[in-house]
Simulated assay, not measured.
Amino acid sequence: MVQATKRAQALIWNTFKELEEHDLNALSQDFPSPHFLIGPFHKYFLASSSSILTPDQTSLSWLDKHPPNSVLYVSFGSLVKIKESQFLEIAWGLANSKQPFLWVVRPGSIEGSEWLEPLPYGFLERIVEGRGYIVKWAPQQDVLAHYATGGFWTHNGWNSTLESICEGVPMLCSPSFGDQFPNARYVSDVWKIGVMLENGFEREEIESAIKRVLVDEEGLELRNKITNIKWKVDLCLKKGGSSYSSLEDLVNYILSF
């Protein structure tokens, strides 16, 4: 992949200058071809166009019932699979946090189960009591943009990470494979807009991390930092902004051949 990239005449990045300028400047030393930073890509298209499953729109009406920045949105994307034991740790961590949550459990995402079978009998009725809402898929961009969403527990795929940044929503990070690990570490340690779950899925750490993001003073600091980045996203996409200008440069570059 690196060798093929070095042979490319130009590189197009799904990011924006203000987020990763230092790293991309360093990268250009090894990849001297023109670089075009025109992201975030999803801002150019309607939210529904990128959905692989039918989103449950009741997620939004459920969010309407909650105060601003109060709900944790939980979704691990379209590929991640987890063990039943991990699923139960997630469930008890969410329950024990006593914070509202919207949880996407994709059918087939729990090894050996169709959907919610591993949950203890009566769990939803006894523990959740309207405080939590579980769906098979959600309109993620709309959920992240909703005023009630106060945190996003994510696998840190790049699309999800960018979507959270664009809406100013702090993250809980649970990477599983590939680029998710460096993405998550940038979120927690470099940009400081999220919290890494260092020990996988353990209910005590989950409960603590949720409270750090939604309840504690730390959560306010995370929100302030990511809101500042969100403001930069809004500017970069406007005429004269970095991504807007880079897209114009890309068009001119292609037309020059």
Results as ranks from 00 to 15, higher is better:
Gln29Thr: 14
Gln29Asp: 13
Gln29Ile: 15
Gln29Asn: 15
Asp30Ile: 15
Phe31Lys: 08
Phe31His: 12
Phe31Leu: 14
Pro32Met: 11
Pro32Lys: 09
Ser33Lys: 11
Ser33Glu: 11
Ser33Cys: 12
Pro34Cys: 07
His35Thr: 10
Phe36Trp: 07
Phe36Ala: 03
Leu37Lys: 13
Leu37Cys: 14
Leu37Gln: 14
Ile38Asn: 04
Ile38Pro: 03
Ile38Ser: 00
Gly39Cys: 00
Gly39Asp: 05
Gly39Tyr: 04
Pro40Ala: 04
Phe41His: 02
Phe41Thr: 02
His42Pro: 05
His42Glu: 05
His42Arg: 01
Lys43Leu: 06
Tyr44Gln: 02
Phe45Lys: 13
Leu46Gly: 13
Leu46Gln: 14
Leu46His: 15
Leu46Met: 13
Ala47Phe: 10
Ala47Ile: 10
Ala47Gly: 07
Ser49Val: 13
Ser49Lys: 12
Ser49Asn: 11
Ser49Ala: 15
Ser49Gln: 10
Ser50Lys: 11
Ser51Phe: 10
Ser51Ile: 06
Ser51Tyr: 10
Ile52Pro: 14
Leu53Trp: 14
Leu53Pro: 06
Leu53Glu: 14
Thr54Gly: 08
Pro55Ala: 06
Asp56Lys: 08
Asp56Gly: 07
Asp56Ile: 07
Asp56Ser: 10
Gln57Thr: 12
Gln57Ser: 09
Gln57Leu: 09
Thr58Gly: 00
Thr58Ser: 09
Leu60Met: 00
Leu60Thr: 05
Trp62Gln: 04
Trp62Leu: 00
Leu63Met: 04
Asp64Thr: 04
Asp64Leu: 07
Asp64Glu: 09
Lys65His: 09
Lys65Val: 05
Lys65Ala: 10
His66Cys: 00
His66Tyr: 05
Pro68Arg: 00
Asn69Arg: 03
Asn69Cys: 05
Ser70Met: 02
Val71Leu: 05
Val71Glu: 01
Leu72Trp: 01
Leu72Phe: 02
Leu72Thr: 01
Leu72Ile: 01
Tyr73Arg: 07
Ser75Ile: 08
Ser75Asn: 14
Phe76Asn: 06
Phe76Gln: 09
Gly77Pro: 06
Gly77Leu: 07
Gly77Thr: 08
Ser78Gln: 15
Ser78Arg: 15
Leu79Met: 13
Leu79Thr: 12
Leu79Asn: 12
Val80Met: 13
Lys81Cys: 09
Ile82His: 03
Glu84Ile: 11
Ser85Asn: 12
Ser85Leu: 08
Gln86Glu: 15
Gln86Trp: 11
Phe87Val: 03
Leu88Gln: 04
Leu88Arg: 03
Leu88Val: 03
Glu89Pro: 03
Ile90His: 06
Ile90Ala: 02
Ile90Met: 06
